[in-house]
Amino acid sequence: MKNPEEIFEQLKAEFGDVVLGIDKETPTEPLISIDPLKMNKVGAFLRDSDDLKFDSLMVLSGVDDANGAKIKDADGVDSISGGTLSVYYHLHSINLKHKITLRVSTSRENPQVESVYNVWRTSDWHEREAYDMFGIIFLNHHDLRRILMPYDWEAGYPLRKDYKNPEFYKGMKVPY
């Protein structure tokens, strides 16, 4: 059993610059930041290393950090430019009974994160959901389609903070 600081040191020794840092100031648990385009090999190491054995991805969730510049265009419509979208990974080792939380942050304009589908199969639908709700592209995912919204939904990604719902979908009025 290891605490997050020890796991961070171990990752830092193994991967160096790929591991960006650890945030201990969060009110819940420490967050370890990882390079979004190197997530796959970090995940494989966390799963396979004998003294870590993170065999369970409890949840993978997308987050809109909404830390970009807020812009109001000519029609008075708000949108966000720049900033980041994040993906959080909550891992648990059933064998060694320890947990960590990882975060990868990627740009809002071109959000790309490496898929961990081949490490934890749990992430298959979770990554599809993050794609559906936030538009985060998971590289090397085998089947990256929308999972909850209709396949032909063209109005964007609903959980982004600057999302605007359309007036009509297939002839049905959407607002109340």
Binding site: L148, M149, P158, V174, P175, Y176
Partner: peptide, 17 residues
């Protein structure tokens, strides 16, 4: 639409539509 009347981006606000 019930409780989803305002923020339910995915909900049809009444089947009579």
């Amino acid at each position: 639409g019930g409780p989803y009347w305002e923020h339910g981006y995915h909900v049809l606000k009444g089947i009579d539509r």
